[in-house]
Design a protein around this nucleic acid. Sequence first.
DNA 1: TTGAAAGCGCTAACAC
DNA 2: GTGTTAGCGCTTTCAA
Lengths: 332, 332
Amino acid sequence: MAVSIKDVAREAGVSIATVSRVLNDIDVVNEETKKKVLDAIKDLGYRPNIVARSLKTQRTKTIGILVPDISSQVYPEIVRGAEDVANIYDYNIILCNSDYDMDKEKEYLRVLKEKMVDGLLYMSISLEEKTINLVNDLDLKTVLVETKDEKGIFPSVTIDDIQALYDSTKYLIDKGAKKIAFIGTKQEEVNAVTKRYKGYEKALLENGLELDEDLRYFDGFKVKTGYNGIEKFLESKKDFDAVVCSSDEIAMGAINALRDHGKRVPEDVSVIGFSNINMSEVFYPKITTVAEPMYDMGSIAMRMLIKLVNKKEVEQQHYILDHKIVERNSCK
Amino acid sequence: MAVSIKDVAREAGVSIATVSRVLNDIDVVNEETKKKVLDAIKDLGYRPNIVARSLKTQRTKTIGILVPDISSQVYPEIVRGAEDVANIYDYNIILCNSDYDMDKEKEYLRVLKEKMVDGLLYMSISLEEKTINLVNDLDLKTVLVETKDEKGIFPSVTIDDIQALYDSTKYLIDKGAKKIAFIGTKQEEVNAVTKRYKGYEKALLENGLELDEDLRYFDGFKVKTGYNGIEKFLESKKDFDAVVCSSDEIAMGAINALRDHGKRVPEDVSVIGFSNINMSEVFYPKITTVAEPMYDMGSIAMRMLIKLVNKKEVEQQHYILDHKIVERNSCK
DNA sequence: TTGAAAGCGCTAACAC
DNA sequence: GTGTTAGCGCTTTCAA
């Protein structure tokens, strides 16, 4: 077994209580004894056992992060922001991929609780009743990122998704687009990405443009969705001069489909993306998109969570960060 | 405090030992008592405290993963593979971003040890002497992914980087390229990516092609590197008809630079990438690249690590997975 | 300023 | 088949 606090105590000729005190910078331990202990720690190469400490203090200094899929494009950035902040405050993160699978999600939640994480960063599906109850039962301090629960019970860090899509649609309208199509996720699913459609709808309606069933396509948020969406529009033979997408990957798929079918972007059709993932400015043409501050969402959420965990005041329960349109070359 | 094993014991009218036994499926606990215990567990909503269990068993069922940066393109995929396997065996992962920073790395290693992770998946820099010693001192069961230590002390899962670059270069040669440039990482750094240059060199030499200092560029592995590399080549006024890149992002940057300077890919210059990240087939033109099985690297490594942790035999110490060239549209 | 000892929640050796 | 108990490594109260 590794060297424990006992060994240090023996080596330093003091009690384990004293060792514990210097370990935790507590009280006024006599400078000399302190030095003895420090020396012993060094000599023995002692490192405290955090599991034991956690059992006693009921705090593990680790935070659970639940994401749908770390190998998709937006989450790594958010997680990175979160981890950086966690690291500053000496927390570590346990990463879990839910795949939007409720059962997997529940199991993770339970295990996270069993492992006594101090808090949870949740960015999977929009929390519905059942999950809310579970999180409550589990009594996990939770902050939602890029999503919200219906009732706003949990603190959250998001952007205004509806407004963001409204803005991107409006951007196209202001540029003179008349027939604007939409590609996004299935509407049955309840999450932030889903809501984006509403912004599109609103912008069209408010600006006297017609909603055309043939010019919207609901599926996922991957490249394939964008590609298929365009093919569907083309098949419908309806004219369209712009496409609003609810992710950058969709935009890429859309642009590729357009190109494959002999349409030029942005000359024939403008395409606007969403999120501003790294690749959107590497793609050709560079994608005009509405940027959400992914890294910041992660870091702000983690900062808030850590405050919550330590029972500090948080200034706000719901952070709504700014989005902004990044003009590049996919819209004319 | 949450409900503990004691509460369950009391509720079921048995001893905590018995509860522990049914929890761990041990011995032949009488079916009736077992039922009583199970009922009590259910009634009380009891969930074992894994921290306490870990302290006792000295196993935490969690694995540390050290990556340079989860928000870069290849690691999410590897981590995803690793997490999926971990999940199957009821392990969780603690994710750490090292940024190739030795100090950060060492600190993480220490904390991971303090938190008693059962093992470590390491995919940062190629392990050099100092880090090796630390890992040894810490006595962490370790598997390296996408990298190796000089002496091959640690088990590893990699591809044959040199051969892979050799193959991609050879591919270009076979297609008739005569003046082949190279863009990759700085040669001072010691890691897998760095070695890739050697494969390029070897292919040129073995095939009677000349190495031209003006036609190689060493910097990083991001898009920018590829872009700058091309500009340097162009400035040198040397002719080149193909570019070998040690990452797909480099290839993207290179292609963009070529386009910006009026060169067509692949008509004027062929460009081959490395890794086969998702985006390489979304990019325009679709990138021909040598694919490394990222997800598999992660999952195989995790499987091996879990075996090691459980003192099971591993069939192999060093897995070298197959790479293969994926032909798309960036080479003629 | 320091030490003794209880106890965090669990497993496992030992006894019955 | 079941219970008692020691102890994993630490923090913290209480007493000295």
